[in-house]
Design a protein around this nucleic acid. Sequence first.
DNA 1: ACCTTTTCATAAAAGGTTTTATGCGATAGC
DNA 2: GCTATCGCATAAAACCTTTTATGAAAAGGT
Lengths: 344, 344
Amino acid sequence: MPEQRSRAGRATIRDVAREAGVSVTTVSHALNGKGTASEATRRRVLAVAERLAYRAHPMARGLRRGRTGVLGLDMRPLDAIGSYLPVGVDYFVRFAGAAAVTALDHGLGLMLVPDLTRPGIPTSAHGVDGYVIGDPVRDDQALARLLDAGVPVVTVGRDPGRPDFTDWVGSDDVHETQRVLDLMRQRGAERVAFIAGTDDNAWNVDAERAYRAWAGRHHLPVRVLRVPEATGEDGGRDAARQLLDGPKTRPDAIYCQTGRHAAGVLAEAQHLGVAVPRDLLLAAGSDAQQTRLATPGITALDLEPEETGKAAVQLLIARLNGEPATGPVYVPARLHERGSTGAR
Amino acid sequence: MPEQRSRAGRATIRDVAREAGVSVTTVSHALNGKGTASEATRRRVLAVAERLAYRAHPMARGLRRGRTGVLGLDMRPLDAIGSYLPVGVDYFVRFAGAAAVTALDHGLGLMLVPDLTRPGIPTSAHGVDGYVIGDPVRDDQALARLLDAGVPVVTVGRDPGRPDFTDWVGSDDVHETQRVLDLMRQRGAERVAFIAGTDDNAWNVDAERAYRAWAGRHHLPVRVLRVPEATGEDGGRDAARQLLDGPKTRPDAIYCQTGRHAAGVLAEAQHLGVAVPRDLLLAAGSDAQQTRLATPGITALDLEPEETGKAAVQLLIARLNGEPATGPVYVPARLHERGSTGAR
DNA sequence: ACCTTTTCATAAAAGGTTTTATGCGATAGC
DNA sequence: GCTATCGCATAAAACCTTTTATGAAAAGGT
């Protein structure tokens, strides 16, 4: 008595029902622990299902339940990669990896969707249960579109143009920035320059705000440069040349948002004969390969991409389960003190 | 006359049909360019669909067509990340980014599935149209399972235990390895040591084979060390200490498979007072942040993860479309000559 | 005028699951 | 002995789309 399978491929619920001598309803109930089946029947169905290696067809189930079991991830940094520059490489993979594993732990898949605002995106992109949007910019289009469509969405870092939206995960940028600045001041800095990126996202906005407030509080001069994230080390080099030019008002400390800019600043400073940390203190607002491997190491905030990715997925799942909005989730950053601020 | 939508959320094909005064069949045909509808009807339907912002429900469509529109990606390096060590970070993100974008260009999504052999993976993982498996090890379990299930799959690098399986994409490791070794010999190397990883994948296997054959051909001594990939720079340091110990038989060149090992070797060599490239030539079989940023830069093979990711997705799509197996696709590597082999 | 194409549109089936409503037989209550 | 309750199982509807088969009307040919 060979087991009849409806089609070549996989066993369907109907096959299990036939084999177990019950109705499909009973199979479904037994498998999902839903109905009122006797213990004997339940066990028999389970055994047959196991034997046939039955797995509910994900799309049939999804169609019926209205849930895909897949989360979407749209990381703005990934868009920036478009040309595949190794920008944010470090952060991205740690984040995406943690997010994927966390989703997996909840029985969900994680789908990469490069850019939701691009035309002609795959229909599957509309089929996910919810979205994680990484580092939205002010009045982010992808975010707006999803919210309009009523899709549950969580962002990493808030949208600066959307103060009401609180379903986000990220570091307390104002506080963390202060921490680093305080460290520099403690190490003797009196003229701290600040190099931000040009992306109009919360991370840049809040850090700059924190810097200005901090300088004001301590009656220290304010010097802000904005350098495109994508310029990387070269951008940092240029900025350093600019800042270290006039010996008169030369800063004795530089705080860069990105690790790559910081690495460029370090290289250029060394090239110009400005010793770090003796003549110049240096720190970065995000950790990266470049800050870890530079000589001396560059003091940096580790934004804990793994924790952040995990928290983002967890928050999204909570939203999907209809739990009330729990406001923003702050992931504390870790401050790695390295040689660039005088650590041994 | 407010438009009736069957439910709160999105418009269904039925809504479009009602609004356009035709049957659902006609709508489907018009939208997919299938049936025999008059030009006038077709245009009217299209206009209504546009107005209602109608999009076919991905799961309903998938259920009917037997296609999800999603590809799965199971990168073994990502598994290794488990603890989220920045191993293969560089390669992974460039690969995954390119793969995602290529899939997107074909109207497909890309789903990250950390480890297919783990128990309790999400059902959605079974719902994808095909899989890309990155760097399978010998007799890879994930690969075996998918092939058994009849799922179309493409690997990056062949499974060393599966010579018959030709649906893979990757570099010609034997040839590329020779290229680097030839360069070192041309720069004067006479005793080249080889540091491989411990993963039993084609990349390690073929490179070591190429090294042994090359050394034999040139009557040069053979010295092979195997260091776990996950040990990174520290592993490289240890290996270097071992190799550079006895001044008697000390190698005058070291070839490392991974960039991180090479970076560790460089650091340790410098620590031991062995000047690179004067006393020791150094090269790596894969490019990474570490090889680019080291001082001096480390000569390395760029395995072109973007090209590889693109090629892998394209090959998978060809398979999905029933095109005959086109054998392995070789992606040529690029050799970056840097200071560690005497480039200026 | 009749038969044959051709054109255009539709009804219905299929895809696999979950859920709601229904039914049947047996036990319990009075 | 009649009815209410309960336990167990199932039929059928629903989810939304695509595809196959069918049919009506119009056009064309003799």
